[in-house]
């Protein structure tokens, strides 16, 4: 699968895209490529620039610097809109219309929509057709958004944090629906701040932090970089010396502390204590995604 996708044609791309909101730098020379048939996971903490990247590919934001293209065309082009679907982070659609009415309206926008019954089935909305949107649970609302994104039978689907706010059951249900889409040959771009979600769904993961790509690879490759522990202490050892110790992925100074990301915390701690008897303020924490991001990001400031 991976090998095939490496040669699959590119459906959408951002090239050296920089985007600012006033003084805030949201994207900093970002490159992103979406290949045909894949699920691309765009992973990053809140505020990393994921939604900005998606908005540029949807044409709902104008490109300031760099190039954005979808199907080789401008992201907002009418020919692009009919072949693409999107699920955005929005607070809701009209509470007073029923599920069926929302689906009917969005189907009308497209030349060759999926049938209403097929959409309802794909999104798991059976039995809710006559329910008003405002009366649905959070999970049901997300599924309606999912159905609307699929209304036009899109080749390319953008899902911006699709499972935010869902409970475990609802999340897993949406996951299996996204997997089914992949089986049917569609291409999906999924943003998430949840590594498990990227791991469960994506063929390829791109990690964004502060508007830059800091890592890219299979979910397994990304995970291996976050599987370690973060060891933190006050020591006279230099970061370079620390980095050469067994299992250390990355080491650096942060304030008066030294931080090291390691896959073998027990070995590292034993070594450290042996080498520096005055070592103080030692902590070992699981390197969650945030720590992994920090470790992956070379501090340039």
């Amino acid at each position: 699968m991976q090998a095939r996708q490496a040669h699959a044609p590119s459906l959408a791309r951002l090239s050296r895209v920089t985007h600012r909101y006033g003084p805030v730098l949201a994207l900093d020379g970002l490159d992103l490529e979406v290949r045909s048939g894949e699920v691309l996971g765009v992973l990053g903490p809140n505020g990393a620039g994921k939604t900005t990247a998606i908005s540029l590919l949807l044409g709902s934001l104008q490109v300031q610097e760099g190039v954005a293209s979808v199907f080789g065309l401008a992201p907002g082009a009418p020919e692009v809109r009919v072949r693409r679907g999107a699920m955005l982070q929005i607070s809701g659609i009209s509470a007073n219309l029923t599920v069926r009415e929302h689906v009917e309206l969005f189907r009308a926008y497209y030349p060759a929509p999926l049938s209403a019954s097929r959409l309802m089935a794909m999104a798991g909305l059976e039995g809710l057709a006559r329910r008003r949107y405002g009366k649905l649970s959070g999970g049901q609302k997300q599924r309606v958004m999912f159905a609307l994104a699929l209304a036009g039978d899109p080749e390319l689907l953008f899902l911006d944090e699709p499972t935010t706010g869902l409970d475990v059951d609802a999340r897993h249900r949406l996951w299996s629906e996204i997997r089914a889409l992949r089986e049917s040959g569609r291409t999906t771009v999924l943003t998430t701040h949840n590594l498990d979600e990227a791991d469960a769904l994506a063929d390829r993961v791109m990690v964004i932090h502060n508007g830059r790509r800091i890592a890219e690879g299979t979910p397994a490759e990304i995970k291996s970089r976050t599987a370690g522990r973060l060891v933190r202490c006050v020591t006279r050892l230099a970061p370079d010396a620390m980095a050469s110790l067994p299992g250390v992925v990355e080491a650096r100074t942060r304030g008066q502390h030294l931080e090291a990301l390691t896959t073998q915390p027990e070995v590292l701690v034993r070594e450290l204590l042996a080498r520096d008897e005055r070592l103080a303020d030692l902590t070992v924490v699981a390197a969650g995604l945030e720590e992994a991001f920090l470790a992956l990001t070379k501090d340039t400031t």
Binding site: S60, L88, I90, L148
Partner: peptide
């Protein structure tokens, strides 16, 4: 209201 909730943003990504 529709600009605030994002409905308009969503519709602008469709061929409407």
């Amino acid at each position: 209201n529709e600009r605030d909730t994002g409905v308009l943003l969503l519709k602008q990504t469709t061929p409407m």
